[in-house]
Design a binder for these strands. Structure first.
Length: 1007
RNA sequence: GCUCGGGUGGUGGAAUGGUAGACACGAGAGACUUAAAAUCUCUUGCCUUCACGGGCGUGCGGGUUCGAGUCCCGCCCCGAGCACCA
């Protein structure tokens, strides 16, 4: 027998796949598409580590299985190659980062190819390629033109020794991690992106919508296309509700309103309302009269007046509040026909105009009642494609990061001045206790506030010291808060008198308004007040008299709001504070003390780095310092060659030192963009040649990864970043797999850019990644993280060489649940190899003439389990099922061609080289196994002829027996009673209950 | 503190409320071999029993149920992420 020579086999088929472009993606619109994407790696000098193939094997298994199942699969790979390591290496060695990047990506490509992944290498992209980053720059310009990019002077961490701006993650405890020098704060102008403008949508779209379909006059949930639409949405796993409204022939608006509201607790801002005919009219009236925020309003042949039908009079006010409706929904669409027997076309046009709605006109379709409604279903399909299927953990992290909180904004005059300040409070239940105010030491308003105070300078110096200490502390929590009195008071709008304003070390300038009203009922505020002897007035007391006494004597603060009682104002006395939140808001708002306000923790995105190795920002400044976007024809704005990679003395990017690059001549086009011009050339008519300076900062390395999944759809397009047609076909990414470390930054930035492109009409979905999964961490054998310094790093090359790529793939998939961290185990690697050895031996027992098989039940069981478990990302159990089958086949003398073929196809996603070898060399096929149809299981074969019953006495198993499958219940129970170890127990009492679970359990309850 | 996971043999891990421990690693025994490796077969949660069997077992304490690793209530521990967010 031939030996299983993994080195020979794997090399052979890898070359074959590459040479024949076996995995080249085509765009066949007859097939259903599937886009499966890995988070593309940064090609570091260290090469691939064993964590990379974990996610990549999983996506490869899915991609291969989908190809077997007849999908058109997009499965690409590329390099996120801008970034610090290559630049730092360049500073040290003088080697151009492009050279390092190329070497590293070559290594990565070789390593990835050695694992047999089925990527389409014709679509490989690299973010540092000018043909790629011209589009990164182009998208930046779209943001700029939309007003989403702006310049702002920001304090940055500056290392005086390295003369370099350090990123936050490079600063450790106030010192530069590379050289240990304390960093300084330096104000530098930075480009910012207004991600905060999208905060609400980034938050809301994490939740999936509810869709409501509202029927019209004389119909119900089963009429027209409603039931089909419901089924369609249910099949796409969208929550949908099609209520039946009362008295449909004689509808009453009030009744419908009550009924509609009974269908939901609250309409959320991601919800979608679809109304047909009178259902549309109902929605128009409802949204005119109620303050509702929804995502989409879809009106299908809506009625906008009663058309003198008596029964409908109740639904139409004289005019709808079109502005209010417009503000209720993010998007409004109207489906209508030009030959509607009830409604004239001009009414639809009028409505579309009033609502700024998209009018989708379908010729000759009457009142749109046909159950077939492909246009609407396609529209709903687009909605469905935007709904996220992400781990709760990642969603929670994003919510946390966005950090929405709703509270009250109080406005108060400052005593002895003519200025007012605003304070934000999310926990205002104890507002009667507010006794002092704190302001952040770095609050920009501080100077103004202190105007006229005697010891102003002393206070400002103290603030400086507080800020210095905060920097030094870094991410450590403060042990003891510090502060100083400003000498100012506010006149409390809610009537607590004059409250002193303190500067407090714990107050944050960039959260809320940076100023807080404080009370005795917050642990931190309480500690601060005690330290500085600020008088306190507790108003909430626990029911426990002993505890209440302690609060009264200011020994402890009471943070337990639910048990507390608000003592003033009297309206609330005797109520538990947690129950009166809403009442308090109304009370305060009514009295005009404060306004509702929502704040977010999310900050705008600092989009510039003073570095060389990044995308140049395509902005220029005229001699007055006014900024202009470069004209599209100027893209890509290429990185110039440079002699020294160090940043300049002033903290500017190294690019600033290249005069010939920075200083240019050009003119302003009619569109307000700037085109450069060679000296000596003439400017077009009506324009003048001016001097400009280029922006010298580069983009952060998150930029290139914020849209790359779109480029994979159309990687060679020179006219657009991606054609609309291709985006419509491939988008969104169906499955996205990568490390959880990107839970917030990358995934939030990517969603942000995608939404901007969506708003510009350049992509068709609101969200880029439909399903997201994070692979678990692979730890070293000792359970610690793998690291060079510990010397416990496993290099995939070594495993591939010694055991083979298929072994590595099977091992990593068999280690445990995909999303869980797990430790490497060399013995288990050998176990995976032994499994493949056994498969190899089994394959030699192939007999082409053999027909019948005695193991068809197990075979079909295996098809079912492997098929289902791959889909559920339960690769470990899928493999264990293949092992069970292999062990059974090992016991067989010979194996039929058919059985072996099925087995090989099932194995091929996991161990593609071995599967291809058996498929071609043993089973004798001439084409690749990769596109063979995936086997299906026959439920009939799953049924065993014999079943085993367990017999339980009072829930404990006492015996078991096998019997033919169809044995009647009475017979099974009777047989169970005769068993020796059962009758023994039955004799000890009387049977008070018999339990029979078909094909599983016979139980007796004996007393 | 908040959020999200998780706790099952010596180990990694399996178990739509229905025979806990599939599959694999490790360990032990045997077959083949001069021998070893490889391969194949058997055993392997703990306690008890010559054996049949019995008892105990899924972090802890309760509950629901004929029956709970699984569902409910109350805790403990571990991991990850966020955190001076008013």
């Amino acid at each position: 027998m031939k030996k299983y020579d993994h080195q020979e086999i794997e090399k052979k088929w890898q070359n074959y796949w590459l040479k024949n472009k076996t995995f080249k993606t085509t765009e066949n619109s007859n097939k259903e598409k599937y886009y499966v994407l890995d988070m593309f790696p940064y090609p570091s000098g260290a090469g691939l580590h064993v964590g990379h193939p974990l996610g990549q094997t999983a996506t490869d298994i899915i991609a291969r299985k989908r190809r077997h199942q007849g999908y058109e699969v997009l499965h690409p790979m590329g390099w996120d190659a801008f970034g610090l390591p290559a630049e730092n290496y360049a500073i040290k060695t003088g080697i151009h980062p492009a050279i390092t990047t190329k070497e590293n990506s070559d290594t990565f490509r070789r390593q990835i190819q050695s694992l047999g992944f089925s990527y389409d290498w014709d679509r490989e992209i690299n973010t540092t390629d000018p043909q790629y980053y011209r589009w990164t720059q182009w998208i930046f310009l779209q943001l700029y033109k939309k007003g989403l990019a702006y310049e702002k002077s920001m304090p940055m961490s500056w290392c005086p020794k390295c003369k370099i701006v350090a990123a936050n993650e490079e600063v450790e405890q106030g010192t530069h991690e590379r050289c240990g020098t304390p960093v300084e704060r330096k104000h530098l102008k930075q480009w910012m992106l207004r991600i905060t403008e999208y905060a609400e949508r980034l938050l809301n779209d994490l939740d999936s919508p509810n869709i409501y379909i509202i029927h019209g006059w004389g119909s119900d949930s089963q009429s027209n296309w409603f039931e089909r639409a419901r089924q369609f949405l249910v099949s796409k796993k969208v929550r949908v509700c099609v209520p039946d409204f009362p008295h449909t022939d004689n509808p009453v608006y009030k009744e419908w309103k009550t009924h509609f509201e009974s269908q939901f607790i609250q309409l959320w801002s991601q919800d979608i309302l679809i109304g047909h005919s009178l259902g549309g009219g109902f929605m128009l009236k409802y949204l005119s009269e109620n303050d509702i925020q929804i995502d989409k309003l879809i009106l299908v042949a809506p009625t906008i007046k009663d058309y003198d039908v008596l029964e409908l009079k109740d639904f139409y006010t004289k005019t709808f509040d079109y502005d209010k409706i417009k503000q209720s929904a993010q998007k409004i669409a109207i489906f209508a026909s030009d030959n509607d027997q009830y409604i004239p076309l001009k009414d639809f046009q009028f409505l579309a105009q009033q609502l700024d709605a998209e009018l989708i006109l379908l010729p000759q379709r009457d009142h749109l009642m046909d159950p077939n409604f492909p246009e609407l279903f396609e529209y709903l399909g687009d909605i469905q494609r935007s709904i996220l299927n992400w781990p709760d953990k990642i969603k929670a992290m994003q919510r946390n990061w966005i950090g929405k909180s709703e509270g009250l904004l109080f406005t108060a005059p400052v005593k002895d001045t003519n200025i007012t300040i605003q304070t934000f409070s999310a926990h205002f239940e104890a507002f009667c206790s507010d006794n002092f105010v704190v302001i952040a030491p770095d609050h920009p308003f501080l100077e103004t506030l202190l105007e006229g105070i005697d010891n102003k300078q002393e206070i400002l110096d103290f603030c400086k010291e507080l800020i210095r200490k905060r920097m030094e502390r870094g991410f450590e929590e403060e042990k003891e808060p510090e502060g100083i009195f400003t000498g100012r008071y506010i006149i409390d709008p809610v009537g607590n008198g004059d409250l002193p304003i303190w500067i407090a070390s714990f107050a944050l300038a960039d959260y809320g308004t940076g100023i807080v009203k404080c009370s005795a009922h917050d642990e931190r505020d309480f500690a601060f007040a005690k330290k500085y002897n600020i008088p306190l007035k507790p108003v909430l007391f626990p029911k426990d008299p002993e505890k209440a006494e302690k609060v009264k004597n200011l020994e402890v603060c009471c943070t337990d709001m639910v048990d507390g009682i608000l003592t003033e104002p009297t309206e609330f006395t005797g109520k538990r504070s947690g129950d009166v939140r809403q009442e308090i808001i109304e009370y305060i708002e009514k009295k005009g003390f404060a306004k509702r306000q929502t704040t977010y923790k999310l900050r705008d995105w600092i989009f510039t780095r003073q570095r060389y190795w990044g995308e140049p920002i395509p902005i220029v400044f005229d001699e007055k310092g006014q900024d202009y976007p470069l004209d599209d024809s100027e893209l890509p704005l290429q990185l110039p060659e440079i002699a020294k990679y160090e940043p300049s003395e002033t903290g500017e990017s190294p690019l600033a030192s290249i005069d010939s690059w920075v200083n240019i001549q050009g003119y302003i086009t009619k569109q307000g963009t700037v085109k450069t011009i060679q000296s000596g050339d003439k400017a077009p008519k009506d324009t003048t040649i001016q001097k400009f300076k280029r922006e010298t900062s580069t983009m952060p390395n998150w930029a290139g990864s914020s849209w790359y999944w779109l480029r994979f759809m159309d990687p060679c397009n020179e006219q657009e970043f991606c054609s609309k047609e291709k985006e419509k076909y491939w988008g969104p990414v169906d499955l996205y797999v990568g490390g959880a470390e990107h839970a917030v930054l990358h995934l939030l930035y990517a969603r942000f850019w995608h939404k901007v492109l969506y708003d510009l009409g350049l992509v068709s979905t609101k969200e880029p990644f439909k399903k997201l999964l994070n692979q678990g961490l692979i730890l070293a054998e000792d359970g610690h993280k793998m690291s060079k310094s510990l010397g416990n790093v496993i290099n995939p090359d070594d495993i591939v060489k010694k055991y083979g790529a298929d072994t590595l793939r099977v091992y990593e998939m068999f280690m445990g649940p995909f999303e869980q961290s797990k430790a490497w185990n060399m013995n288990a690697v050998e176990g995976a190899r032994k499994f493949l050895d056994r498969v190899w031996r089994v394959s030699q027992k192939n007999n082409k003439n053999r027909k019948k098989e005695s193991i068809s039940s197990l075979l079909h069981q295996t098809i079912k389990v492997v098929t289902e478990h791959i889909e559920e990302f339960r690769f470990n159990t899928a493999i264990s099922q293949l092992m069970v089958l292999t062990n059974e086949l090992t016991a067989q003398e010979e194996i039929s061609q058919e059985t072996l073929e099925i087995f090989v196809i099932l194995l091929s996603p996991f161990a593609p080289h071995l599967a291809e070898e058996i498929w071609r060399e043993i089973l004798g096929h001439t084409e690749t196994v990769a596109y063979e149809p995936w086997p299906t299981w026959n439920p009939e074969y799953l049924i065993e002829n014999e079943v085993t019953y367990a017999v339980q006495i009072n829930g404990k198993v006492r015996a078991d027996f096998t019997t033919p499958k169809d044995t009647a219940k009475e017979e099974v129970v009777a047989k169970a009673k005769t068993l020796e170890n059962v009758s023994k127990y039955l004799d000890q009492g009387t049977i008070i209950k018999e339990i029979f679970v078909p094909e599983k359990i016979v139980g007796f309850v004996v007393k």
